[in-house]
Write a protein that binds this DNA or RNA. Structure first.
Lengths: 341, 341
DNA sequence: TTGAAAGCGCTAACAC
DNA sequence: GTGTTAGCGCTTTCAA
C-alpha cells in the first residue's frame, strides 16, 4: 500500500508538491507533475479516503436514502445517481429503509450522516419537519428526488398533473365510473400517492363528473397490492369501467385481477398507470411516462454542483407524457357522452 | 459538532478513557463509563468516521459490487445484505457496474485498494484471475454472492443443478424439442448463464435426448432479451414445444413472444424459468425458485463473521426448489413417450 | 483504572 | 514552484 510519502520519495519532492500535482492544483511545474503522476501510477498509489477526509473535511461520498431498493422506480433512480456520482469520483453510500420506521429514524436522527458524507440524496419521501431540520443542520447539499418538498431542492414530476392526465385520458374516452387505486396515504415512506389522488379528483371535478368515494381504494405500491385492491374494487355491484392506478406496478396487478375475474381489457375495463415501467410496454399498458433515471441524475448533478460552489436556484419539475397503448379504450356502453374530441 | 475532546472535558477525563468507555473496552470504572456515555449523548457526540478510520484502520463500511442494481435479482440481494450490515452497524458502499467494462476495471483496480472498506461483497460475477489476485491482496474478507468462484468464499445456488431440474421437468413431461435461452456466455458481468447451459445439456444427455444446437440461443438477461431471443427460436420451421429460459425475466419475455405469435401456453409451448421472481406467480410461470435475499444475507453475515475473527470454513450452496405452475404441461402431440412417472 | 503522547496519511498555511 | 510545519479527530501504546 503505497502512501503519498512513497511517491514523494520516489520523485524526490515533498508530499505537499505530490499532493498538489495529483489533485491538479496550480503551482506545480509541468515536468514535475508528469513525474509525479507517473510515479503514482507505477507505485499503485491510491489516497486514503480517511486521511483525505480528516485533513480536508471532504469525504467524496454521497448518501442516498431509499425507501426500497427492490422497487423498480428506486432502482432506476439509484442507477441514475450512481452514474453521475461515479463519473465525478464520488462514492455512493446506500441507506435502504426497507419500510422499517426504525431504520428511517436511525438514519435521520443519529447523526450518522454528519461527518460521513458530503451531500445527501433522499428518494421518494417527504421529510418530516423534524427531518428537514436535521437535513438542514448538516450544512451540506441535500436533494429530494421523486417527491416535492418545500424548502428543499427537489427534482420530481408534478404528481398531481400526471394523475390528472391519466384520469383525464379515461374521462375523455367517455368513462364516467373511473376507479382510483393508490398507496396508503399515511405511508410516510413514499409520498407520491397523495398528490396522485388529488390529481384524480381534480380531473373528475374539472369535467363535472361526480365523485364516488367507493371507487377509491388503496393498497401496497406493488403488483400484489394492485391486484388485491382491484379485486375488491371490481367485486362490487356497480363496478368501474376504468381504473387509474397510481403506479404501473399496481396497474399490472389490476390487469391480473381483471383477468381472474374474466374481464377483458380494454373492452370490459380500461387501465392506466403512471411510470412507464420497463414492463409496461410488455403489458400494452397505457401510462403516463416519467423520466426516472433522469431524476436520479439530476439530483446527483445538483448536489455536486452545489458542492463545487455553483448553486442552481430552483427545484426541477420534469415533464411527463401520456403513452397510449391498448389497455385503454372507450367504454363498451358509455353511460355518458363520448370523448370531447 | 461535538468531538471526543468536548466529551472528555465535560467529564474531566482524558480522551483515551472516553474512547475506551464509548467502545465498551475493559478497564474503565463503571461510574466513569456511565458518566461518559451520558455526556456523549447529551452533547450529541458522534465519532468522525474519517478519524476512526485513520487511527484504527477500520471503516465499518462494506463494499457491494453489483452488475446492475436495477435487475430484480440484484436488488433483492442488496436488500438482504443491507439488512444484515445495518444491524451490525456497518455502512454499505454501492458500486454499480451497469454493464460498463470501464466501471468494472476502475472498481477492482482503484476503488477497492483505497483502504475504504473493511470487506467486499461481489454479486453475480466471477472474478477474473487478475481480479481474484487483487481481492486477495486486500487482505480483507471477501464473499462472492450468486456465483461460485474457486478459492473465494461464495454463497450461491448450484446453477447447473437448477437448470437440470428445470429442463428435466420439461423432459419428464414428454417434451423432446426443448429450447434453451440464456445470457451471452462471454458476458463477464454475470456468470450464471454458462452453468445453466451446462445443466440444460446435462439433462438432455441424462435422458438420452438428442441435442439440437439450433435450439439454443442467447439474449440479454431481461424481459426484452428473452422476448427477442424467443421470437427467433420460435420462428423456425421445426420449433421447440418447450423452452427453458435461464431467468424468469427472460421467461416472461418468452411468454410475450409466444402470445405475439399466437401460441398459447402451455398447450402450444411450455415455458420454465429460474428465480421465482416476484412476478412469476403473476404469470403462472413454472420456475426453479432460489432464495435470493437470503443469499445477500449470508454473504454479509459471512464477511462480518470473518471480520470478528470467526472464520466459517466453506462456501455455501443454497437449495433450490421446482415450483410448478401452469406454464408447463405435456406437449399436445408428444413425439416421444410420456412422462416416466 | 487512567493519562500522556505518538501517530494514522493526508491537506493547508505559510515560508522560501 | 516547492518545502516546512501543523494539524484534522480519533486510537493506541506505554507509563503511571
Amino acid at each position: 500500500m503505497a502512501g503519498i510519502k512513497d511517491v514523494a520519495r520516489e520523485v524526490s519532492l515533498s508530499t505537499a508538491t505530490v499532493s498538489r500535482a495529483l489533485r491538479g492544483l496550480p503551482g506545480v511545474s509541468d515536468a514535475n507533475r508528469l513525474k509525479v503522476t507517473d510515479a503514482a501510477r507505477r507505485l499503485g498509489y491510491v489516497p486514503s479516503p480517511s486521511a483525505v477526509g480528516l485533513a480536508s473535511g471532504q469525504t467524496r461520498t454521497v448518501a442516498v436514502i431509499v425507501p426500497h431498493v427492490t422497487r423498480w422506480f428506486f432502482g432506476e433512480v439509484v442507477q441514475g445517481a450512481e452514474e453521475v456520482l461515479r463519473t465525478a469520483g464520488y462514492d455512493l453510500l446506500l441507506y435502504n429503509l426497507a419500510g422499517e420506521p426504525a431504520a428511517r429514524h436511525r438514519v435521520f436522527h443519529t447523526d450518522l450522516l454528519s461527518k460521513r458524507v458530503d451531500a445527501v440524496l433522499v428518494l421518494g419521501l417527504r421529510p418530516t419537519e423534524e427531518e428537514r431540520r436535521r437535513l438542514a443542520g448538516l450544512g451540506r447539499p441535500v436533494a429530494i428526488v421523486g417527491a416535492a418538498a418545500p424548502d428543499l431542492f427537489s427534482v420530481s414530476i408534478d404528481d398531481e398533473q400526471a394523475a390528472r392526465i391519466a384520469t383525464g385520458h379515461l374521462l375523455d374516452l367517455g368513462h364516467t365510473r373511473v376507479g382510483y387505486l393508490g398507496g396508503s396515504l399515511d405511508s410516510l415512506d413514499f409520498v407520491a400517492p397523495s398528490a396522485r389522488l388529488a390529481g384524480y379528483r381534480a380531473a373528475l371535478r374539472e369535467r363535472g363528473i361526480e365523485h364516488h368515494p367507493e371507487l377509491e381504494d388503496v393498497g401496497e405500491f406493488t403488483v400484489a397490492g394492485g391486484r388485491a385492491a382491484a379485486a375488491r374494487l371490481l367485486a362490487g355491484p356497480d363496478r368501474p369501467t376504468a381504473i387509474f392506478a397510481a403506479s404501473d406496478e399496481m396497474a399490472i396487478g389490476v390487469l391480473r385481477a381483471a383477468r381472474e375475474l374474466g374481464l377483458s381489457v380494454p373492452s370490459d375495463l380500461s387501465v392506466v398507470g403512471i411510470d412507464d415501467h420497463e414492463l409496461a410496454g410488455f403489458f400494452d399498458l397505457t401510462t403516463v411516462a416519467q423520466p426516472v433515471r433522469e431524476q436520479g441524475r439530476r439530483g446527483a448533478e445538483r448536489v455536486l454542483a452545489e458542492l463545487t460552489g455553483v448553486r442552481p436556484p430552483e427545484s426541477e419539475v420534469l415533464p411527463v407524457e401520456l403513452v397510449v397503448r391498448t389497455s385503454t379504450a372507450a367504454p363498451a356502453c358509455p353511460s355518458a357522452a363520448g370523448p370531447s374530441a
